[in-house]
């Protein structure tokens, strides 16, 4: 059981590493590498989850709209989208290309 966990964990860690690397090398930045206090324009949203995409859209987070990073932490960050403040975890930040 334990082995299974570590395998899965390693698996996911590798997956996200690859993702970011591939993405960064393609010249795209994700919200993860944003700087606090700066405003960016959303270029792409890659959540693989249609419902999530729609949800983000309703909040005002879609291609072409500004998003501001307020503060950043190890596993999450706080952003401003259309006058509202939200706490996002890193998985989600990763999926927002700026």
């Amino acid at each position: 059981m334990l082995a299974q966990f570590t395998l899965k964990r390693r698996g996911s860690a590798v997956a996200s590493e690859v993702d970011t690397e591939a993405v960064e090398s393609a010249g795209k930045r994700t919200l993860l590498s944003a700087e606090p206090g700066k405003t960016y324009i959303v270029k792409e949203i890659n959540t693989d989850d249609d419902e999530m995409n729609s949800f983000l859209f309703r909040l005002g987070c879609y291609v072409g709209e500004p998003i501001t990073l307020v503060s950043k932490k190890k596993k999450s960050c706080i952003v401003v989208i259309k006058d509202g403040r939200y706490n996002l975890d890193n998985l989600l930040s990763e999926a927002i290309i700026i």
């Binding site: 698996g11 706490n87 975890d89 999926a95």
Partner: peptide
């Protein structure tokens, strides 16, 4: 988690921080 097996599923967390 151990019983049901960890299914790798992207579970996003977004929470609005009201004023």
């Amino acid at each position: 988690k151990a019983i049901t097996g960890y299914k790798y599923r992207k579970s996003f967390f977004i929470m609005e921080l009201p004023k």
